[in-house]
């Protein structure tokens, strides 16, 4: 018999990573930019977290350093997209490569040593903030406060917003910093609690950023939708061992989350439109 409670709680760490990264991206996309670079930012942040925790002996310093490194990548993205007017897709994809490349070089410098862990208290508080506090705060800020109107106006029509007097560049830089911080936190958290637990193993932390991008769409650019989607995808991950026990080959079980997500992407938008939840016009329109 499957232990449902255990399964539900096993999904939490996965869901936390997704929720943090996807909320960060959601906020940015509401401000009219889409950063495809999450995969690289998470990876770099994890690598930086590993080395700084190892060298300082303090997981908190590691965590902060990871966040900073991710913010730097987000701002680099901003420099290209805002200052130079470069294409968002190519810039974001380059960030992926840059982050993975640098992250791996940095992470490998730990030699695979086990770093101090953040401890259960910090772990739990991150889980709770990511899955409960953050979505509510983001919802209130984005949809119930005038600052949220400022941010969302950019996701609707930046030219009009500029004409209304919205400080476009400033707002977007702020959104990029929030994006970088949340995605960076996701990467640090992933390093500490991920599959290998506070130990760097190259190329073991891939796919998280990409899936988070998908979760933004599954949650239809709404903080509450995103947190639900994060948890469901987390659950899919947690269920993989279960699938293997019923005789599904591990290679196929590994693929199920992606398969489910692609199907969900295809059917979900009609549902949300019925609930009058709309994606930011500048980012996605059907």
């Amino acid at each position: 018999m499957v232990n449902i409670a255990a399964l539900l709680s096993q999904a939490l760490p996965y869901a936390t990573v997704y929720a943090l990264a996807a909320q960060g991206e959601l906020f940015l996309e509401r401000a009219g930019l889409f950063n495809l670079g999450l995969e690289g930012m998470i990876y770099l942040s994890a690598g930086v977290t590993a080395i700084i925790s190892l060298h300082t002996g303090s997981p908190i310093y590691g965590l902060l350093a990871g966040i900073v490194s991710s913010i730097v990548l987000a701002l680099l993205y901003g420099f290209f997209v805002i200052t130079l007017g470069a294409d968002q897709a190519v810039t974001g994809l380059s960030i992926v490569f840059l982050g993975i490349g640098l992250g791996d070089v940095i992470g490998r410098a730990t030699g695979g040593a086990v770093t101090p862990s953040i401890g259960i208290l910090a772990d739990d508080s991150i889980v709770v903030s990511a899955l409960l506090v953050l979505p509510i705060v983001l919802y209130l800020v984005l949809f119930r406060s005038w600052l949220g109107y400022v941010v969302r106006s950019l996701g609707e029509n930046a030219a009009t917003a500029r004409a209304l007097g919205v400080p476009v560049t400033l707002t977007r830089i702020a959104a990029l910093i929030i994006n970088g911080a949340l995605v960076g936190l996701a990467g640090s958290y992933l390093f500490f609690t991920g599959p290998l637990g506070s130990r760097w193993v190259s190329m073991s932390l891939l796919g998280w950023g990409w899936m988070s991008l998908g979760i933004v769409i599954l949650g239809y650019w709404h903080p509450l939708g995103v947190v639900v989607a994060s948890y469901l995808v987390g659950l899919l991950y947690a269920m993989r061992p279960l699938l293997e026990t019923v005789g599904i080959p591990s290679s196929i079980a590994d693929v199920t989350p992606y398969l489910v997500v692609i199907i969900a992407l295809a059917v979900i938008s009609a549902l949300y439109e019925k609930m009058n939840i709309k994606p930011p016009t500048a980012i996605w329109s059907r």
Binding site: Y149, R152, S153, E156, N157, T160, A161, A163, L164, K278, T281
Partner: peptide, 9 residues
């Protein structure tokens, strides 16, 4: 001349 408002607001 052409109203500058956010349509989805």
């Amino acid at each position: 001349q052409n109203p500058m408002l956010i349509d989805n607001f």
